[in-house]
Amino acid sequence: MPNLKLINIADNHLIRLTEATWQPIWSTLLDVYLQGNPFICDCHVRWLVQKESEMAQVIKVNRYLYGRCFTPSYLKDKRLEDLKLSDVECK
């Protein structure tokens, strides 16, 4: 799906975005609608945070990532696009 630019999977009860599934197409997406999903923002989203950081240095157009953390409690309602690597440390 090299031409995929927008994906809307809002309100689908998703709790994770697995790297194996999303990493191959992540860099082609410009608009990613994930709101309304109860995401667990733990070590499993570290790949996403890393990829977003790398892409911010490369992409020269506006990219929108809509979605918020549901758990853990210290990250509840934090926007996925605002996560830092320090927020999702792997132990």
Rank of each mutant, 00 (worst) to 15 (best):
K51R: 14
K51P: 00
K51W: 12
K51H: 12
E52I: 03
E52M: 14
E52G: 04
S53I: 10
S53E: 13
S53L: 15
S53V: 11
E54K: 15
M55T: 07
A56Q: 11
A56V: 11
Q57V: 11
Q57G: 10
Q57D: 11
V58K: 15
V58N: 15
V58M: 13
V58L: 15
I59C: 05
I59G: 00
I59E: 09
I59R: 13
V61D: 08
V61W: 12
N62W: 12
N62D: 07
N62M: 13
N62C: 08
N62V: 14
N62R: 14
R63M: 08
R63A: 05
R63V: 12
Y64L: 03
Y64N: 05
Y64H: 04
Y64I: 03
L65C: 02
L65I: 09
L65V: 09
Y66L: 04
Y66M: 02
Y66K: 06
Y66T: 01
G67S: 08
R68V: 10
R68A: 13
C69K: 00
F70G: 01
F70K: 02
F70A: 04
F70S: 02
T71W: 04
P72L: 11
P72K: 11
P72C: 13
P72V: 07
P72T: 10
S73T: 10
S73A: 13
S73F: 14
Y74F: 15
Y74L: 07
Y74I: 11
L75G: 01
L75S: 01
K76Y: 11
K76M: 13
K76T: 12
K76L: 14
K78P: 00
K78N: 01
K78M: 05
R79M: 11
R79C: 04
R79K: 11
R79I: 08
R79D: 03
R79N: 03
R79S: 07
R79T: 05
L80M: 03
L80V: 03
E81L: 07
E81Y: 09
E81R: 09
D82A: 14
D82N: 13
L83W: 05
L83R: 04
L83N: 08
L83P: 01
L83V: 06
K84P: 00
K84I: 08
K84S: 10
S86K: 13
S86D: 06
S86A: 15
S86R: 14
D87Q: 09
D87K: 03
D87C: 08
V88R: 01
V88Q: 04
E89K: 12
E89T: 11
E89H: 09
E89P: 00
C90G: 00
C90M: 06
K91H: 09
K91V: 10
K91M: 10
